[in-house]
């Protein structure tokens, strides 16, 4: 609503807002992040509860997609087993850049209650994927997941696009020089 307030601003800017393209792009990206509909274990039930009427995740602009190719971020909701790890990696690789990962629940964070004798449990999804937001809890409350979501949106809004590209290009060049 801040935008509309500024439009009614008595200073009289005639609806002109000053900002950078980066801000605009990030604002747009953060407010319509589509997620991959992908449940793993117990946390998926809480994840479903967040989707459903009581908590209503869509008001954050999050729309479930069944295909990883259309998704912006994935919520790893539950225990990742070693049998699943390869598949999960593959699903993640199918997602288009930029992509984000929320690790929901203790199991996805660190193996959770299965850390000690779980011979078939991957102890933390960050061993195979880069995780952006960790949501603790076993399972996390829906409110916790929502906070994780807001944190992710915040992260997306703070992201550098052009400067980062320039910097990365410079770094790449430097690396290449080093190789030579």
């Amino acid at each position: 609503m801040g935008l509309l307030n500024r439009l009614n601003d008595p200073i009289g800017l005639d609806g002109i807002i000053f900002g950078t393209v980066e801000d605009l792009l990030n604002w747009g990206r953060s407010k319509s992040d589509w997620y991959l509909q992908f449940g793993l274990a117990c946390c998926a039930i809480e994840f479903m509860a967040v989707n459903a009427s009581h908590f209503d995740m869509m008001r954050y602009g999050c729309i479930p997609r069944s295909s990883p190719r259309q998704a912006d971020f994935v919520i790893i909701s539950g225990t990742v087993t070693l049998k699943m790890a390869d598949r999960l990696k593959r699903v993640y690789e199918q997602m288009a850049e930029p992509k984000y990962v929320i690790a929901m629940g203790s199991c996805a964070n660190s193996g959770g209650p299965y850390w000690e004798h779980g011979y078939h449990v991957l102890k933390g999804v960050d061993r195979i994927l880069p995780v952006d937001v960790y949501v603790p809890g076993c399972p996390p409350r829906p409110e916790a997941l929502q906070e994780g979501l807001i944190l992710l949106q915040k992260k997306i809004r703070m992201e550098e696009i052009f400067r980062k590209r320039k910097r990365l290009a410079e770094e790449d060049l430097a690396n290449q020089m080093n190789y030579k």
């Binding site: 070693l82 790890a85 390869d86 193996g111 850390w115 000690e116 004798h117 011979y119 102890k123 061993r127």
Partner: peptide, 12 residues
């Protein structure tokens, strides 16, 4: 329990 499976470390 194995040390490694498909490149993933198994123990904590």
């Amino acid at each position: 329990e194995p040390e490694e499976y498909h490149g993933n470390r198994v123990p904590y």
